[in-house]
Simulated assay, not measured.
Amino acid sequence: MTNETELFSLVADEIENDTLALPGMPDIAVRVQEAVADPLMTLPRLSRIISQDPALTGRLIKIANSAWLGRAVKAENLPQALTRLGFWQIRNVALGVALESLFKAKNKLVQQELHHNWRNSLELTAAAVTLLNHYKGERKLHTHTLALGCMTSRIGMLPILSLVEREPSTFCEPEFLRQAEKSLASSLGGKVLRNWNFNSELVEVQENWRLGIASFKPGYLSFMQLAAVLLGQIKVARPDEVIKMFADAGTISRARFWQQPAVQADYQDILSALTD
């Protein structure tokens, strides 16, 4: 039995027996979600809740001052940043950013793999948000919803790597982990998001983004898949032809859109806000 088959079997058994350890939502994300759902919540009260987490506070201020929101007015502090973001954007962005706390492990190779997955998630987020920010079409799409889909794109690796950390001598090999990511992560990611009560649209994005291009027309899944193609996170036989199809469908304005200096500047600025 190969390592991959063993891991498939182990995952299947734990799912069947309901013993697979799914990650819980970070505490600060739970508090923010509950606060935003409170009809009596105010921005000052929400600011006090978020300010209890310095890392999240700093990240939200950087995002508010980045190309994500156009950098029209500089936010000097958390209340100003939250005013720029607005309640529902705060909810999704705070949850996405807080996920970094889950990507931790004691085993060195597992930690490297988690870091690799989290970095890829942030690069995907920055690229997808940049694409949607430049979208001029008629379909109403929200950058914070797309961003949450991208930030959770590798969440399915957490239960896999939890099993790997339990049996490192059997499963802890870089090439094997890459294959497990391709084969198992999306379906497990869908299971995690259902457990977190995500809406069906984001669950479907999670489960399908690694599969073949579903549609070239504007939508959360198509923006995510286009970003992944542009970054090389999804491999396609003829990338130039695929990108042209997205352009023909109106998702981007032209095939060479991604190479424009202004677009790349926005991408790097958003990525810096997410990672620095």
Rank of each mutant, 00 (worst) to 15 (best):
Asn120Leu: 06
Leu43Asn: 02
Met1Phe: 12
Thr275Pro: 00
Ala72Pro: 01
Thr19Gln: 06
Trp196Met: 02
Gln233Pro: 01
Asp248Val: 13
Lys217Thr: 14
Glu167His: 12
Ile28Pro: 00
Lys136Ala: 08
Pro54His: 09
Arg71Ala: 08
Leu131Met: 09
Ala214Val: 10
Ala55Lys: 12
Tyr135Phe: 15
Trp88His: 08
Arg254Thr: 11
Pro79Phe: 08
Ala185Cys: 07
Asn195Pro: 00
Ala75Glu: 10
Arg71Gln: 14
Leu109Ile: 15
Leu221Thr: 11
Val236Tyr: 03
Ile28Met: 13
Gly24Phe: 08
Ala273Gln: 02
Met157Glu: 08
Gly58Lys: 04
Glu207Ile: 12
Phe176Tyr: 10
Phe176Thr: 13
Ala249Tyr: 09
Ala21Val: 15
Leu22Cys: 04
Leu102Pro: 02
His134Lys: 05
Leu226Asn: 03
Asp18Gln: 14
Gln112His: 10
Arg59Thr: 15
Ser121Tyr: 09
Ser153Leu: 06
Ser187Ile: 11
Asp269Ile: 10
Asn120Met: 11
Gly156Ser: 04
Thr5Phe: 09
Leu85Gln: 01
Ile252Gly: 00
Gly156Glu: 10
Val236Lys: 01
Arg119Asp: 14
Gly190Pro: 03
Met1Val: 14
Leu271Pro: 00
Lys106Tyr: 05
Val242Arg: 03
Leu141Phe: 05
Asn208Gln: 14
Arg256Val: 08
Leu226Glu: 08
Ser222Asn: 03
Ser272Trp: 09
Asn17Val: 05
Gln264Cys: 02
Asp266Ala: 09
Ala185Ile: 07
Glu76Phe: 07
Glu14Trp: 07
Phe246His: 07
Thr275Ala: 04
Thr251Arg: 05
Pro174Ser: 12
Leu230Asn: 02
Val129Pro: 00
Met245Lys: 15
Val236Arg: 04
Ala180Phe: 11
Leu40Ile: 06
Ile270Gln: 00
Val129Phe: 02
Leu163Lys: 10
Leu230Lys: 08
Glu6Met: 12
Leu271Thr: 05
Ser153Asn: 04
Ser186Asn: 10
Phe87Gly: 01
Phe246Val: 12
Ala37Pro: 01
Thr251Val: 11
Lys62Leu: 03
Cys150Gly: 02
Ser186Phe: 11
Leu109Gly: 01
Ala67His: 13
Leu22Thr: 15
Trp258Arg: 05
Ala72Ile: 09
Ile49Trp: 05
Val129Asn: 01
Ile213Arg: 04
Met151Asn: 04
